[in-house]
């Protein structure tokens, strides 16, 4: 069975739409920073080995780890 694509699968510059977050705690954190379902996420930067990552949601820049990104199911926008 093919896993659905997560934020970690995309590269710098890609714009994706957040579809589902697989961790409740992470959901609360992302939501309170304005990163909610249906929101467009731009991948801004990745540190060496893809960890951590900076994403942009509207005019907010948010950093997260690769493990967090792997829990965020997204679709290319």
């Amino acid at each position: 069975m093919r896993m659905r694509a997560t934020l970690a699968d995309y590269k710098v510059g890609d714009k994706v739409i957040l579809k589902k977050v697989l961790d409740n705690h992470l959901t609360i954190q992302l939501y309170s920073m304005g990163c909610i379902l249906g929101e467009e996420i731009t991948i801004e930067r990745k540190a060496p080995f893809g960890d951590p990552i900076i994403i942009r949601v509207e005019d907010s820049f948010i950093s997260l780890r690769k493990d967090d990104a792997q829990k965020m199911e997204v679709l290319l926008s």
């Binding site: 961790d23 705690h25 992470l26 954190q29 992302l30 920073m33 951590p52 900076i54 907010s60 820049f61 948010i62 950093s63 997260l64 780890r65 493990d67 967090d68």
Partner: peptide, 9 residues
């Protein structure tokens, strides 16, 4: 679980 969700102003 440890994570690093942080705003960069």
């Amino acid at each position: 679980r440890s994570n690093f969700v942080m705003e960069l102003p």
